[in-house]
């Protein structure tokens, strides 16, 4: 769980923050509604978790809300990864 959270956080920071970007991102930072990730580049985030955890998230579940915070992404991944 903590590993999962850390891996997603690391990816978000690497993939979406610019070098001079001094915005703080933690597990509850709104990513999409906060303007850090636009809904279009969200797909690379989806692909990242799908590849890394070997899951398929159906489009219906891959809503901007579900991807809005690292916490909600963790919840989503856990749901599809099963128990």
């Amino acid at each position: 769980m903590e590993d999962l959270k850390q891996a997603i956080l690391d990816y978000v920071r690497m993939e979406y923050l610019e070098e001079e970007d001094d915005r703080e991102v933690d597990e509850s930072t709104p990513l999409i509604s906060g303007g850090i990730v636009d809904s279009f580049s969200m797909v690379s985030l989806k692909r990242f978790v799908e590849k890394k955890y070997d899951i398929q998230i159906p489009d219906a579940d891959a809503s901007p809300e579900a991807f809005d915070t690292v916490d909600s992404i963790v919840a989503l991944v856990e749901r599809f990864r099963g128990p």
Binding site: Y16, E18, D38, F40, S41, V43, S44, R47
Partner: peptide, 23 residues
């Protein structure tokens, strides 16, 4: 990541995988 809105629309209409790079 900063391409014009009309390109984003065009990409949405296309079945190819989409990805982006920092500006």
């Amino acid at each position: 990541r900063l391409v014009h809105a009309s390109i984003i629309d065009g990409m949405r209409l296309c079945k190819a995988m989409n990805d982006s790079y920092k500006h």
